[in-house]
């Protein structure tokens, strides 16, 4: 290597670290700017009616997004009920039985699946549910979010189960416990906090998804009318309202954005605090 003088090295060091500090500053500045706008614009749109009333037509005062908030909750619950059990089982498979080639393939593909474009999953669910049922539906929305959840839950479950020391498994098996008994009472029990955190993060992630709902749950100006009908939901409503030319709808969109952001961030913070307190105890 060509020797550099001490001075040059110090200057290079200073300049590059300065650049890195600037990069961090720029990145953080942008993100604070976005959060600031969401809070500042959103807070003025939020009031009691926002959470209790149906949407009002443009130009008419009042109205809220209560149906969309309820719809998002319903769709997220469907996704959780469908996606979490499958994800936990698959994660258990990878951690407890997953040493073969099949498991390696499942692991590799679910890693890809985690980042797969969510809109394509929407197209897939459109093809398997909306086309045969001849209707957009809340159910289809829930299924598409469940598909997004499965690989996320699978991978976090596996990671958390792998943190359980093998000695504990061996101790249970040596006492004569059947394998399922060991997994249920030893592995799940000691990995519980981590698994719950993973599930919570997965729920937070799908609750903010928009793209897969655009043509599965669609949207609706009414209260949810059963799972086989189009269902109002917060994210698609935000999209439609923000793209509309009416300023009162755009204000509502900011309100919805604030609700979603606070919900997602709160779930994330709660999950992190939760896992930390459990870790310290255990």
């Amino acid at each position: 290597m060509r020797p550099r003088s001490q001075g040059t090295r110090k200057v290079i060091n200073f300049l590059s670290l300065l650049a890195s500090g600037c990069a961090a500053l720029i990145g953080i500045a942008f993100l604070i700017w976005i959060l600031w706008d969401v809070i500042a614009q959103g807070i003025s749109a939020i009031n009691w009616q926002f959470f209790t009333q149906l949407p009002a037509p443009p130009g008419i005062k009042g109205g809220g997004l209560a149906n969309a908030i309820l719809g998002t909750i319903i769709i997220t619950i469907i996704a959780t009920v469908l996606g979490v059990p499958i994800g936990i089982l698959a994660g258990t498979y990878l951690s407890e039985f997953g040493s073969g080639r099949l498991a390696a393939t499942v692991r590799f593909l679910s890693d890809i699946f985690v980042s797969a474009p969510s809109i394509v999953i929407g197209v897939f669910v459109y093809a398997i549910l909306v086309l045969p049922m001849h209707s957009f539906s809340g159910l289809a929305g829930g299924v598409s979010l469940a598909i997004i959840m499965i690989p996320v839950v699978t991978r976090t479950t596996e990671e958390m189960l792998r943190l359980v020391p093998n000695q504990m498994r061996e101790a249970a098996l040596a006492l004569g416990a059947p394998y399922w008994h060991m997994v249920w009472n030893v592995a799940y029990r000691s990995a519980r906090a981590g698994m719950l955190t993973g599930i919570l993060l997965a729920i937070a992630r799908v609750a903010g998804e928009t793209a897969p709902l655009l043509f599965t749950a669609l949207n609706s100006p009414y209260w949810p009318q059963g799972l086989t009908k189009p269902m109002a939901n917060l994210t698609v409503t935000i999209f439609n309202y923000a793209m509309s030319p009416y300023s009162d709808w755009q204000a509502k969109a900011w309100g919805g954005a604030l609700v979603i952001t606070i919900g997602v961030l709160a779930a994330n913070i709660f999950a992190r605090v939760f896992i930390r307190s459990k870790k310290n105890k255990g």
Binding site: W33, I34, D37, V38, Q41, L201, A204, R205, G208, E209, T210, T235, I238, F239, A242, M243, Q250, A253, W254, A257, I260, T261, V264, L265, N268
Partner: peptide
Amino acid sequence: AIPSIIYGMWGLFK
């Protein structure tokens, strides 16, 4: 973790 719709909306209005 912030949903991408927030980024998009901010991009449009701001």
